[in-house]
């Protein structure tokens, strides 16, 4: 492949830390891996946590720092959900890769170069249970000469026998302070001006996901120039304007079904994602101080139901209408039971 020009990469890639020590907020794993760099040894690893918190970054960084650019290709195998063509392929790939012997562990060109190979299985939670089971054997067979790095969002989807063979590290959502300092660093490099309100908006709308924060920042910078305010960030982030959420909520409170239906239609025509609407409605309902807990509970129940159905692929309009109808019945103390059901 032709050499990649720095300038043609999106900022998320451009600002991906190259060294483990630059990974922010994940102190425990950084400490352990820094140690690894000295002792040139490490256990199998399992990184888990929400998107955009540095899992892939950390795994790639340590691999590069252990082997350097020369040996990287022969010592590190990166597999992810996209390469997963069923367990047979994975197994063959790993076997072929692990079977070629590595020399004794000698430092080369300033890199520790320990006598093992690293296999990074990114997005391991999308592997089937069968595939994971088959991997157990493979891990054992090659345990002397390989270290596995599993990466996933949901640790519950990794089978226990695999998880228990690894040192587990949870990647935490980034705190607002850390997020702010990374963002300020990028602003500095790119010559952007971010006022303090914008900075705190960006940290809070990205909810601990630094990738998201960087993408929003780049979007806003390209669209609105080098001085960025809070409004610009909200408009690229897909957050629904509060007026829209309030209008729907007010329609539910009014007890007028047709009015609520009209608001629901507007939300759909404006293209707002219904999943986002549900989470913002949730905030409104939970924070409202003029409605009793029982009503809140009833509304939350229907929000949960709709959320699940959306994940199943149900229609956005029908689900939001159902939520509006349920909320209306809760808020206006209409009977919750249907009268004509047989």
């Amino acid at each position: 492949m032709a050499p990649v020009l720095q300038s043609s990469q999106p900022w998320v890639e451009k600002y991906r830390p190259k060294q483990v020590k630059d990974v922010a907020h994940q102190d425990e794993v950084v400490r352990v891996l820094t140690n690894t760099l000295e002792t040139a040894n490490c256990p199998h690893m399992l990184f888990y946590g929400p998107p955009g918190t540095g899992k892939t970054t950390t795994a790639l960084a340590i691999a590069h720092q252990l082997f350097g650019p020369e040996l990287y290709k022969s010592r590190v195998l990166e597999l992810n959900a996209s390469d997963d063509r069923g367990i047979n392929v994975v197994r063959t790939k790993i076997k072929d890769f692990a079977a070629v012997a590595v020399g004794s562990g000698q430092r080369q060109g300033g890199y520790p170069c320990p006598p093992f190979k690293i296999i990074i299985l990114d997005e391991a939670d999308s592997m089937t249970e069968d595939a994971q089971n088959a991997l157990r054997r493979t891990m054992e067979t090659y345990s002397k000469v390989t270290r596995f790095f599993f990466i996933c969002n949901y640790i519950s989807r990794i089978i226990e026998p695999l998880a228990s063979r690894c040192a587990k590290f949870r990647f935490k959502p980034l705190s607002e302070e850390i997020m702010s300092s990374r963002i300020l660093h990028i602003c500095d490099q790119e010559g952007l001006n971010l006022d303090s309100e914008a900075l705190s908006t960006l940290s809070s709308i990205s909810q601990g996901d630094l990738r998201r924060a960087i993408t929003y920042l780049q979007g806003a910078a390209r669209l609105f120039g080098s001085s960025i305010c809070s409004k610009d960030l909200i408009s690229v982030s897909g957050v629904i304007p509060q007026e829209v959420v309030d209008a729907l909520y007010a329609a539910c409170k009014s007890g007028n079904f047709d009015l609520a239906n009209k608001e629901v239609n507007t939300v759909i025509a404006e293209g707002y994602p219904v999943s986002q609407m549900l989470s913002q409605l949730f905030d409104v309902v939970v924070e409202a101080d003029d409605i009793p807990d029982e009503q809140k509970a009833r509304i939350c129940k229907c929000l949960a139901e709709a959320d699940k159905r959306l994940v199943d692929g149900a229609d956005e309009y029908l689900q939001l209408l159902d939520v509006a109808s349920n909320s209306m019945r809760a808020l206006c103390n209409m009977p919750q039971e249907f009268s004509f059901e047989s």
Partner: peptide, 17 residues
């Protein structure tokens, strides 16, 4: 009746998926 009917529409569309 509107509430009841919209509830079932949402219910059956989900089942259809």
């Amino acid at each position: 009746l509107k509430h009841e009917v919209c509830h079932w529409a949402a219910y059956y569309e989900h089942r259809m998926r």
